[in-house]
Design a protein around this nucleic acid. Structure first.
Lengths: 216, 216
DNA sequence: GTCTATACTCTGATAGAC
DNA sequence: GTCTATCAGAGTATAGAC
């Protein structure tokens, strides 16, 4: 149950929140953890404060004592998530070895799915709903970063250091494959049987897949 | 707007429904189409009869005249979907050329995503929710079929006709990649710009990917 | 077959006692 | 800080006129 936790999002430029006591911080964290569970399973509209309160072991009014609204809880979770979600791609180093960099990126994404499956499903839910709440994030943060790395991949391909492949589809394939292990874990668990971890063998398989794809 | 339609599911063994007039059939179809739109976006709990009725251009009680309940609409959609969802894998022919068969399977899955993106998202929503309504389908229908094809892939690998790869991860990768183009279409559209179709170049990329992976 | 009116439950949020 | 009580609105579903 000791799931890793995403770092608190820094609202750049916003006024500092009132200082919080230990119990404040602790209960807010309990609520966020419960809400992550519920939102990632049922989506924003499908989740209820009742479920979140029960999951958190608190009363409904008590939950609303710590957060202004259902929406505020959800926004808090999303903000923390998005802040972390770009890190693996950001870390891709133009000066490094092309194949090693791409493989390392894939592995970092896979680790995110392994360590933060609920966050991954929260993100998936947002996209399925048409991404209304994260549209600006995708356009203003994700897209420029992807464009930048696509250019880099194109240069690597032109230099003959990796196979000449569409950089956008390469990115999409890494997202799809790594996210899938978190988002479709329920299905994978039923297919593979309860004795197996869904991610068992995933890194080996993806390693082989991209090794073969990228070879010039 | 003329989206292709899934065939009516045959409830094997259930009593025949009362015969329906033309207007019955037509309105039921309109409602199913509207409900597919709403359920695939918001999930079961996030969807409301109000949204469905508005989308269908009918009043809420009128919707409930054609279907017993919100749940009945959803069940109808799911049944039609699941019946079709296995077809691409079922069609994989043990007597065919291994690489060609796998590539054809991938292409059929990609076509499903292209032609039935809403059905794909409906399925994704179910899995994200933990697959409570389709657990028996996965265990009793999907899993045996996957096991069967996994055995076939192992035989092909042992005979040296394809590279020796984990057949389960191969299946998972095909699901992940093809479904992703439908389920994450909102994100892909924002990344690639509005002029592009999300699936543009997908078949070429996936073709190269699996050609390289499968080569013995 | 379709509508208005309505019953009843759930849901988000607030008031106020403790 | 936490609870019980409660409100207003939305939600599913039904009754009954047309």
């Amino acid at each position: 149950m000791a799931a890793p936790r995403l770092p608190t999002a820094q609202k750049s430029g916003s006024a500092a929140k009132a200082p919080r006591s230990r119990i404040q911080k602790r209960n807010r964290q309990i609520i966020l953890d419960a809400a992550l569970e519920v939102f990632s399973t049922h989506g924003f509209r499908g989740a209820t404060l009742d479920q979140i309160a029960t999951q958190a072991g608190l009363s409904k009014p008590n939950v609303l004592y710590y957060f202004d609204s259902k929406d505020a809880i959800h926004r808090d979770l999303l903000t923390r998530l998005l802040d972390t979600w770009l890190d693996p791609l950001r870390m891709m180093n133009p000066a490094g070895d092309p194949q090693a960099e791409i493989m390392a990126y894939m592995r970092r994404k896979l680790e995110l799915s392994r360590d933060f499956p609920r966050e991954s499903r929260l993100f998936a839910n947002e996209i399925l709903q048409g991404a209304p709440r994260i549209e600006s994030f995708i356009r203003d943060d994700l897209r420029p970063l992807v464009d930048d790395k696509a250019q880099l991949l194109n240069e690597w391909a032109k230099a003959g250091r990796i196979a000449p492949i569409d950089p956008y589809h390469l990115s999409i394939s890494i997202w799809a494959l790594t996210q899938h292990y978190a988002d479709f874990a329920a299905q994978i668990a039923m297919i593979r049987g309860d004795g197996h971890d869904a991610l068992e063998g995933a890194e080996t398989f993806l390693g082989a897949l991209y090794t073969r794809l990228l070879a010039p």
